[in-house]
């Protein structure tokens, strides 16, 4: 599903040039649960953004579902991403002015799905995330764990094949963190591919495979199922 070769990303600002990713070769197959770890600033988010088609690599190739997408224009990337990728962020990234329902509805609106169908889908996914009683609330009226559950609901509402989570538990206490991890695992079991960035060994242990990044390079890969076997 995800296949990158010699991927690099260079950020140029007025003063400095940062090489965030350096020759990254990554292969993720459908149904996998992959955790990316590494110290702060090593390029984890940059990698996730490229995988999620939010950004282009500076060099190298990236095949998403077998299609080369490394050099697509923004509008084409948006098209490829729509309905296929769901995002979960550390700081939830819900829109303060919108209700829980409206936040979750967002991807469906841009997929041009009819209002009645949207209602059905949003209600269903919120029930599943145990947030069905909070549809009319605004994000700031919810706890962090609840907000992240809404964010996950939004990420999965359109039934994407891939979920990208950037430190999804970083702003949560351990109880809420475990709840979120359980949700992600459950989604993965149902067939959704999950790529997650994390600092926590506990969270990483949920994954089938752990990739360690250092200075924009993959330094080690640990396959957990291999261990288990």
């Amino acid at each position: 599903m995800i296949k990158t070769e010699h991927l690099s990303k260079i950020f140029r600002t007025e003063e400095v040039e940062t090489k965030a990713l350096n020759d990254v070769n990554l292969h993720v197959t459908e149904g996998e649960f992959v955790a990316i770890m590494g110290p702060s600033g090593c390029g984890k988010s940059s990698l996730l953004n490229i995988i999620g088609l939010l950004d282009n690599p500076s060099e190298g190739t990236y095949a998403f579902n077998g299609k080369e997408v490394g050099k697509l224009k923004e509008s084409q990337r948006t098209q490829e991403r729509k309905g296929n990728v769901g995002f979960v962020f550390q700081s939830f990234n819900l829109i303060d002015e919108l209700t829980v329902f409206e936040n979750v509805e967002l991807p469906l609106i841009y997929l041009k799905i009819s209002a009645s169908e949207r209602k059905r889908m949003v209600t269903e996914v919120l029930e599943r995330m145990k947030m069905g009683h909070r549809v009319k609330h605004f994000p700031q009226q919810l706890s962090g764990g609840q907000q992240q559950r809404v964010a996950i609901a939004r990420a999965v509402v359109a039934n994407p094949k891939l979920i990208l989570a950037d430190e999804p538990t970083g702003n949560l206490d351990s109880k809420n963190g475990i709840e979120v991890m359980d949700l992600l695992t459950e989604l993965n079991r149902e067939g959704t591919t999950v790529v997650m960035v994390t600092h926590s060994d506990r969270d990483a242990n949920y994954a089938h495979r752990i990739i360690n990044l250092f200075d924009g390079k993959i330094v080690t890969e640990t396959r957990k199922d291999a261990e288990l076997v």
Binding site: L54, E74, S75, T78, R81, K82, G83, F87, N93, L94, I95, E97, L106, P107, Y110, L111, R154
Partner: peptide
């Protein structure tokens, strides 16, 4: 700007 970012991540095009 944050809202715009969130919407774009969730599939909004420039036109939207």
């Amino acid at each position: 700007s944050k809202e715009i970012g969130i919407r774009k991540v969730n599939g909004a095009t420039i036109k939207d």
